[in-house]
C-alpha cells in the first residue's frame, strides 16, 4: 500500500476565489446545477451552499458581521474528509465504497445502486446523489490523477496554497508548525481532524480553523453510524420479547378461560 495521502486546508489563507471548485468540476466533468442557471442564496455571497453529488468542492463563506464596521469573513474550502474510519464505507450495502491504496475513500459509480445509505451515514453531509448518474458521488481525491503521479486538481489550482496535498505524515507536521505560528501571533487557531487518536481515527482531509468547528458547519465530535447498532438492536429484541410474552400469555389465558367455561357447562 502506498503512503496515506490527503489534504491539509489552512482556512486562514483561503481568499474565496473558488478556483478549487472550478478545477474540481472541470476535471471530474461534473454537470452544472439547474442547467447552469444558478439560484442566488439571497442571504450570503456563498451561492454554492453545500457539498453534494455535483459539487465535490465547496468554498464555504462564513459571514460574521455584527455591524457595518465590526465583522469578518471566514472561508473554508470544504471537501470529503476521507475518514480513517469512514461511516459511508461502513454502511454501504453494495460494496461500492472502497478504501484505496492511498488510504482515501472512493465510491465506485458503476457499483453504487443509489440506495443513499451513505448520505445519511456521513457525519459531515458530504455525499449526495448525482442526478445524471443516479448514484451517490463525492470527492475521489482525484484517484485517477494520483494513479499517474499527479496532484489533485483542486490543490493544484489553489493560488494561495490554502489547500495543500501530500502524505499525511508530512501534512500533519506542516499543520502543527502553522498552528503554532498563528498561536504565537495571538490567533485562536486549532487543528480539526489532524489527530489520529481523535474522532474517526483522524481525517485524511483536515483543517486549520480559527473559530469553533460548528461555525464552519463541522460536527465537534463526528461518530460512526454503527455506534447505535448494538443498543438499538438490543432494545428491539427486548420490545419483541415483551410482545411475544404478551401474545402467549393472552392466548394461554383465553384458552384456560375456554376450558374453564366448557368444563363448567358440562
Amino acid at each position: 500500500m502506498a503512503e496515506a495521502m490527503g489534504f491539509f486546508t489552512d482556512t486562514t489563507v483561503c481568499i474565496g476565489c473558488k478556483a478549487c471548485e472550478v478545477a474540481c468540476k472541470e476535471w471530474n466533468q461534473l454537470p452544472a446545477e439547474n442547467g447552469g442557471i444558478r439560484e442566488l442564496s439571497g442571504d450570503s455571497y456563498d451561492n454554492t451552499r453545500r457539498l453534494d453529488g455535483i459539487h465535490w468542492r465547496h468554498v464555504r463563506f462564513i459571514e460574521q458581521f455584527k455591524g457595518p464596521y465590526d465583522g469578518r469573513w471566514l472561508m473554508m474550502s470544504d471537501v470529503c474528509k476521507h475518514c480513517v474510519q469512514a461511516g459511508c464505507l461502513e454502511v454501504c450495502p453494495t460494496g461500492a465504497i472502497i478504501r484505496t491504496e492511498f488510504d482515501t475513500v472512493v465510491i465506485q459509480s458503476d457499483v453504487c445502486n443509489g440506495c443513499r445509505a451513505c448520505i445519511a451515514a456521513c457525519p459531515f453531509g458530504v455525499i449526495d446523489i448525482n442526478p445524471v448518474s443516479g448514484t451517490a458521488q463525492k470527492c475521489t481525491l482525484c484517484y485517477d490523477r494520483l494513479k499517474v503521479g499527479l496532484e489533485p486538481a483542486c490543490s493544484k489550482a489553489c493560488p494561495t496554497d490554502s489547500i495543500q496535498f501530500g502524505t499525511i505524515t508530512e501534512l500533519r507536521t506542516r499543520a502543527e508548525k502553522r498552528a503554532d505560528q498563528l498561536k504565537a501571533q495571538g490567533v485562536k487557531a486549532a487543528l480539526y481532524g489532524a489527530d489520529s487518536d481523535g474522532p474517526l481515527g483522524g481525517l485524511n482531509s483536515f483543517y486549520l480553523l480559527v473559530d469553533e468547528p460548528e461555525v464552519y458547519g463541522l460536527p465537534r465530535k463526528p461518530q460512526l453510524p454503527t455506534r447505535n447498532l448494538a443498543k438499538s438492536a438490543g432494545f428491539s429484541v427486548l420490545s419483541a420479547g415483551v410482545l411475544g410474552v404478551l401474545a402467549l400469555v393472552g392466548l394461554r389465558k383465553r384458552r384456560m378461560d375456554q376450558v374453564g367455561g366448557s368444563g363448567g357447562s358440562n
Partner: peptide, 20 residues
C-alpha cells in the same frame, strides 16, 4: 438509528418503537 441524522441517530429506541 444507524445513521448520523437528527432524531434517527439521537435515540436507540426507534427499532423497539417500530417493532411495537
Amino acid at each position: 438509528s444507524v445513521t448520523n441524522r437528527p432524531i434517527w441517530a439521537d435515540s436507540p429506541w426507534l427499532g423497539a418503537l417500530f417493532v411495537a
